[in-house]
């Protein structure tokens, strides 16, 4: 498998949020502002890479019949340990990222990558896959958060650029997440359909 393929798959060809529609819970909940999306994105990149590495190392030890409970155990232990270590040794980082870590345990992207990639590939490829999928996740989060923060609060990264009269509160509430995601998916679907038609006409 070529490394560039892993990157292309993770970042756009099989983007976890926009193509696979995985990890909807953090996507909808944590995209109210760009800074939240960045915090969640960084946490996912780190945890996903580490979980892919550890699953890849143990892939020959874990019996196939009980692999799912084993993965869940490994991921939960990993996240808990990282949370405790950050809390003890880097308290300032814990203040900014601490609220995202518990959300990651229930993020199905981590489990999906463990099941479909890390359990079948070597450590190097699994590491790269973790980083690539994490970056793809972060970019999609940033895209949604950009529109929600701008239309909901009139600001980008906390700096106000639109007057308060144009703020639409619904955009930072849960319905705004569905609207934004739906419109983005619709636009993407439109372009991929157009591409398909062009290919068929040729």
């Amino acid at each position: 498998m070529k490394i560039s393929d892993i990157f292309k798959d993770g970042i756009y060809r099989k983007n976890a949020i926009l193509i696979m529609l995985l990890g909807m819970c953090p996507t909808l909940a944590v995209t109210t502002t760009l800074s939240n999306a960045i915090g969640m994105g960084i946490s996912v990149i780190v945890i996903l890479t580490l979980s892919n590495i550890s699953i890849s190392i143990m892939r020959k030890v874990i019996p196939a019949a009980v692999r799912i409970p084993a993965y869940i155990g490994i991921i939960a232990a990993l996240v808990t340990i990282i949370e405790m270590l950050i809390h003890a040794y880097v308290p300032t980082l814990y203040v900014s990222l601490g609220i995202y870590l518990p959300l990651i345990v229930v993020n199905c992207i981590i489990l999906e990558r463990a099941e479909s990639f890390a359990s079948k590939n070597n450590i190097l490829h699994s590491t790269i896959d973790g980083i690539a999928v994490g970056i793809g996740f972060t970019l999609a989060m940033l895209l949604i958060a950009f529109f929600r923060e701008l239309l909901g609060t009139g600001a980008i990264l906390g700096f106000t650029i639109l007057p308060a009269s144009t703020n639409m509160l619904i955009m930072i509430l849960p319905p705004g997440a569905f609207l934004t995601l739906g419109i983005i998916l619709g636009v993407m679907g439109h372009y991929s359909n157009k591409k398909k038609e062009e290919l068929e006409n040729e």
């Binding site: 874990i62 019996p63 009980v66 155990g73 490994i74 232990a77 808990t80 340990i81 003890a88 040794y89």
Partner: peptide, 26 residues
């Protein structure tokens, strides 16, 4: 298979316990 799952869980529990006991005071 059951034994292996048990061993994996036990190792994970011990790991979490050890990290917890070193970081709890800090």
């Amino acid at each position: 298979t059951s034994l292996l799952l048990g061993v994996i869980s036990a190792v994970l529990a011990v790991a979490v316990f050890m990290v917890n006991s070193t970081t709890a005071n800090i």
